[in-house]
């Protein structure tokens, strides 16, 4: 094993896949000569050249569409968005073109493309730069959606995404790129659609994904001191969701809290709560609770950010509620 930053894990995934398959290329804003806005693609231009590591103008719709067309015609593009907030401009090509092409062509044209970049809030960037898109894209049949929370998951899942024959939305975070974690020395691939039990426990299950998992771990540590054993399930893939992993955990703990960085309405937490009341009703000893971002645009002031985001205190409160403690 070796210790790498999250950004290095992503870079290794892309570089390995580019060495393996000539059809894989990286395109996006600042990916080449600038070495990546967040240094994910550092050094890749030197290794692969300007034909395969391609700087684009600031034109998200245009280069997303060029990526879709290239994928239709047999290549395997990795399209980097500086953040997913900017990719709202490209949503037509992701949702209307990439996700629909196989069906509307009667199975003739698949779109093996990965759209990736930073997702969610990254500090004091205010409302337009701070959104999480898991639920938006998970809503769309035809797409797959991945949100890794560790360097290990990031590398294994990005390699799987690049090899996948369907369009994949890959959600990272500017705030995670510097996170360190262990990965194997050699090549490995993780399956899409499989959740991971990040921490085993017996009293309550917390279902979560993405970087907010760090707050969950803090809460779980505190709760453990109070004698509450928390199981943490990291969904890792948001479409398709590994429902079995969630249900199996609830069969053990009988209690569930969902922690999500995004807004509450029509969210992944509502989906998990629906699924559990439908398929694990008899195993639940309490209602499913959730901790989400406030139902507001993301704020700028630090005092308001603290109020908006899930934090250990709110998570602990939710866990105690489903445990009927206090």
């Amino acid at each position: 094993m070796k210790t790498v930053q999250f950004r290095e894990a992503l870079r290794e995934a892309m570089s390995e896949e580019m060495r393996r398959d000539e059809g894989v290329f990286l395109m996006g804003e600042e990916v080449a000569e600038y070495n990546g806005a967040y240094k994910v693609s550092q050094g890749m231009l030197d290794e692969f050249g300007a034909e395969r590591v391609i700087d684009t103008p600031i034109a998200e719709l245009g280069f997303a569409g060029i990526g879709v067309g290239a994928a239709m015609n047999g290549l395997r593009p990795v399209i980097e968005f500086m953040t997913w907030n900017f990719a709202i401009l490209a949503a037509d090509q992701i949702i209307n073109s990439a996700a629909k092409m196989l069906q509307m062509s009667g199975g003739q044209i698949n779109v093996p493309i990965v759209f990736r970049g930073g997702n969610g809030q990254a500090g004091q960037l205010a409302a337009t730069h701070s959104q999480s898109f898991e639920a938006f894209y998970a809503h769309v049949p035809g797409l797959k959606v991945i949100t890794p929370s560790t360097p290990y998951d990031a590398k294994g899942l990005l390699k799987a995404a690049i090899r996948d024959n369907d369009p994949v939305v890959f959600l990272e975070s500017e705030k995670m790129y510097g996170d360190k974690g262990e990965i194997p020395e050699g090549e490995y691939i993780l399956p899409i659609g499989v959740a991971d039990i990040k921490r085993e426990g017996s009293d309550v299950t917390i279902v979560t994904f993405g970087k907010i998992i760090k707050e969950v771990f803090k809460a779980a540590d505190e709760l453990e001191k109070e004698g509450v054993s928390v199981e943490v399930i990291d969904l890792r893939t948001i479409r398709p969701i590994d429902y079995d992993a969630v249900v199996n955990s609830i069969k053990k703990t009988n209690r569930c809290v969902v922690v999500e960085e995004s807004w509450p309405l029509a969210s992944i937490s509502s989906e998990i709560a629906y699924h559990l009341q439908r398929y694990a009703f008899d195993y639940l000893d309490a209602p499913v609770y959730r901790v989400t971002q406030s139902d507001t645009p993301f704020p700028f002031a630090t005092s308001l950010i603290a109020e908006a985001l899930p934090n250990p205190k709110r998570i602990i409160d939710a866990v105690k509620s489903v445990m009927y403690i206090n």
Binding site: E51, G65, I66, G67, V68, G69, A70, N73, S97
Partner: peptide
């Protein structure tokens, strides 16, 4: 929508 897609297909031909 087919304008960038068409250019992308051409990108693949050039590639």
């Amino acid at each position: 929508a087919q304008i960038p897609m068409g250019a992308g297909m051409a990108f693949a031909e050039k590639y």
